[in-house]
């Protein structure tokens, strides 16, 4: 297992609540996990995630994850 930091922002906080974890937390995931498998594990609809960030960089859903990674998920924001 690997431990990563996971952050949910704005409307995606609902997924933290559904999974009964804090908005910002450390979670355990399987070795070889990707963004896509992480979303699957926490029942997060990929279409709701506008940007997935790993260690400060925007990544695609097939991005592999490493122990200690910092992952943040952002919804689309468009208000003016």
């Amino acid at each position: 297992m690997m431990k990563i930091e996971l952050r949910f922002y704005a409307t995606l906080v609902k997924y933290a609540e559904k999974n009964e974890i804090p908005q910002f937390s450390f979670v355990e995931i399987e070795e070889g996990a990707t963004i896509a498998s992480l979303l699957n594990k926490f029942n997060i609809l990929e279409k709701h995630v506008h940007i997935a960030m790993v260690n400060g960089r925007s990544v695609e859903s097939n991005q592999g994850l490493q122990d200690g990674d910092r992952v943040a998920l952002f919804p689309p924001v468009g208000g003016g």
């Binding site: 704005a10 409307t11 506008h50 940007i51 919804p75 689309p76 924001v77 468009g78 208000g79």
Partner: peptide, 16 residues
């Protein structure tokens, strides 16, 4: 960033 949202016209502001 915009392209994945082009099916929708607005973002999280519609609920927040």
């Amino acid at each position: 960033v915009f392209s994945s949202s082009q099916k929708v016209e607005r973002g999280a502001e519609t609920s927040l």
